[in-house]
Design a protein around this nucleic acid. Structure first.
Lengths: 108, 108
DNA sequence: CTTCTTTATCGTAATATTGCAATAAGACAA
DNA sequence: TTGTCTTATTGCAATATTACGATAAAGAAG
């Protein structure tokens, strides 16, 4: 089918999945790492830093923005993208229980 | 195209993306949370706990296993799935720099 | 105004993912 | 052996994703 049965899962599960999915592409990981390095936040710089066409990068930026992981601020002619701390904190918070559980011995 | 240009990104970026992608579906989040709750690790229990057909759950389990996030141990007639601590630690380690950066003020 | 620069969107093609019924494969019991 | 239980795989249809060229939209510069 190709259609995820979103309704059958909790809002939290869908939210965590959406955040993970947004990060689930090397180009988007590269964008996040670039923004995290705080070298520059102008869209054009991101395009130059990635081995993809401008249209493709724009599409990936849109997905990251839709997931809430980044936000874009229009600066005159260009757009400044940066990480959205609130969303990332939420992401971290949702992963925390799993990371914590890992420290304990597993069943098999 | 639909074909990710894996070659143009670093191994680390591809690895992080692969782990995130594996978690990028509510059913797989539900599986991980179920295993994390340590209620039971038998495949059949996971199938019963999810609102999906057995074949579909088996497919999701396969993806999680391929990503290395879980491992399956055959227990006689059934299979016991559990989290793979090493992979989860690696996942956490790769996300750490981003989470840390979030604590600092952003550029815009 | 016109032109340039920058970013977003559209259209399209190729590939990937999701979901399930049906079936296969394996272990166990009798 | 046969039958049952459990999990994996196959085959298919529907939808989603990835990528890029072309083009649109909007502000800056002249």
């Amino acid at each position: 089918m190709g259609l995820t049965k979103t309704d059958n899962f909790t809002t939290e599960q869908n939210e965590l999945a959406a955040l993970a999915k947004a990060l689930g592409h090397p180009a988007r990981v590269a964008i996040i790492e670039y923004l995290s390095s705080q070298a520059d936040c102008v869209c054009g710089s991101i395009v130059d830093a990635l081995p993809l066409a401008q249209a493709t990068v724009s599409q990936h930026l849109k997905e990251l923005k839709n997931a809430g992981l980044i936000q874009g601020n229009i600066e005159g002619n260009s757009v400044c993208y940066c990480l959205n701390p609130e969303k990332w904190k939420k992401f971290k918070l949702m992963l925390e229980p799993i990371f914590t559980h890992i420290e304990q011995p597993v069943c098999c």
